[in-house]
Design a protein around this nucleic acid. Structure first.
Length: 419
RNA sequence: GGAGGGGUGGGAGAGCGGCCGAAUCCGCCAGUUUGGAGAACUGGUGUACUCUUCUGGGUACCGCGGGUUCAAAUCCCGCCCCCUCCGCCA
């Protein structure tokens, strides 16, 4: 959520920046409604002040046993008018809120503008595997070795609900545990949040109202299935004023993630690449505005650390204004290489949302005891998403004789060296 | 799911429909005192919106949303959450 005051005062500047994300954005209707709203507030508050004075006078007269009927009828009229104005203001509030809730965050100046193709590859880490023997797609390896079962998963639930079995299940659990523990040791407070949450929570994360089609809803109970732990973690400190000396606050969570993935998928996204349910370890930080970009760098480094420990080649990509999530001011993706498809796939998306979510969730801190509360900055990043990570291991670690080498840090956990 | 109890300012905790944005205590901030700290004393200490900006004024907020009334923390209705007991259950 953007600050309506900033829109009011620096409309042209903000509009120009927002247009780099979506050319159709027009702030004029919001500004107009805001002006009308403030005009009505001035009017109704004057009337309320008059009513308050009048009501006190009524009380005084009644105590003295005097007649107040003339005042009563006058005040009754005022109250009716107040009711009308309050109703009108409320409708304006709702409409302004609705329009604001659809606007994206202001992009950071360092973010390249334009469509996805303009993204900037910041660096590549590790060596891109160039095997001189054929690499089977992970989907094939997984089925041949009996560690991934897409058929039974589909029968049980539906397509793109993969089942991990045998060493597949052990390896997936090991990955989750490895990442979760690693981040916890690096200072992130470990969290296992609820996997369902209510509408307000998803509004704060800004999953709602704009992206309702992407998440599963449990109609009967008014709850939604978690699509990313970001949606849950941002709500930990909702409506709180965090003591400044507690910032930054860092959390790591494990959750399964459920996504409807409405729309079509390509042939190349079969297998574990795009699924309705996957596992993810998520990093989240609450910081001061001054430190949020330094914290973004360290969050990215923490996510990278996982890929380094697993010895997987990856690249670091700076997303463009047109490609970021609504709430993000700046996003950096980590992409792993899948040799069988000769393509990179995102396994982590690290964003600084600045005060966008904090404003929605009313999450603040007090810089010093004397100062007013300010909104915190929130950051999130996958650390990282498995399913895709699993696919990367199954393809990158294939040996010439058809085995899959388990990353050495995981070997003790699964009590095996090869799959 | 059933029965009962409860949600008030950072915390605890009062509050006959008008004198209640709300007593009191604790905490916190500033000052006095002290070699320093503590104690004690004095003063201050919510949030948001809005108008004016030099000072400041107005409005709203006592779980949430409605209603009654000139006027609601206080009365009525609905919902949510917490606690206790019963039932069910991993």
């Amino acid at each position: 959520m953007l600050d309506i005051r900033a829109i009011r005062e620096r409309r042209e500047e903000l509009e120009a920046r927002l247009k780099t994300r979506d050319r159709s954005i027009d702030l004029a209707p919001i500004v107009k409604l805001d002006e009308k709203r403030r005009r009505l507030i001035a009017e109704v508050e004057g009337l309320k002040a008059e009513r308050n004075r009048g009501s006190q006078e009524v009380g005084r007269r009644k105590k003295e046993g005097k007649d107040a009927s003339d005042l009563l009828s006058h005040l009754s009229g005022i109250s009716d008018r107040i009711g009308e104005l309050d109703g009108e203001i409320r409708r304006l509030d709702e409409e302004i809120e609705r329009l604001l809730s659809l606007l994206p965050n202001l992009p950071h100046p360092s973010v390249p503008t334009g469509p996805e193709e303009n993204k900037v590859i910041l660096r590549e880490v590790g060596e891109k595997p160039v095997p001189d023997y054929p690499i089977k797609p992970h989907i094939l390896v997984g089925e041949e070795k009996g560690i991934l079962d897409f058929t039974r998963g589909a029968a049980m639930t539906g397509s793109r609900f993969p089942m991990y079995i045998g060493m597949g299940a052990r390896l997936e659990m090991a990955l989750i545990n490895f990442m979760f523990t690693r981040h916890a040791k690096r200072g992130y407070t470990p969290v296992l949040p609820p996997f369902l949450a209510n509408e307000r929570s998803f509004y704060v994360s800004s999953q709602l109202p704009k992206f309702a089609d992407d998440i599963y809803r449990i109609e009967r109970d008014g709850l939604y299935l978690n699509p990313t732990a970001e949606s849950l973690l941002v709500n930990i400190h909702r409506d709180e004023i965090i003591p400044a000396d507690q910032l930054p606050k860092s959390y790591v969570a494990y959750t399964p993630c459920f996504r409807r993935e409405a729309g079509s998928y390509g042939e190349e996204e079969r297998g574990l690449i795009r699924v309705h349910q996957f596992n993810k370890v998520e990093l989240f930080k609450f910081t001061t505005p001054e430190s949020s970009y330094a914290e973004l760098d360290s969050l990215i480094a923490d996510a990278e650390e996982i890929l380094k420990a697993l010895r997987i080649h990856y690249r670091v990509v700076l997303l463009t204004t047109g490609d970021m999530a609504q709430q993000a001011a700046k996003t950096v993706d980590l992409e792993v290489y899948l040799p069988a498809q000769g393509r990179y796939y995102e396994v982590s998306s690290c964003s600084n949302c600045e005060d966008f979510q904090a404003r929605r969730g009313n999450i603040r801190y007090r810089p010093s005891p004397k100062e007013k509360p300010r909104f915190v900055h929130t950051l999130n990043g996958s650390g990282v998403a498995t399913s895709r990570l699993m696919a990367a291991i199954l393809e990158n670690n294939q040996t010439e004789d058809g085995r899959v080498l388990i990353p050495d840090v995981l070997q003790p956990m699964v009590e095996a060296v090869y799959v």
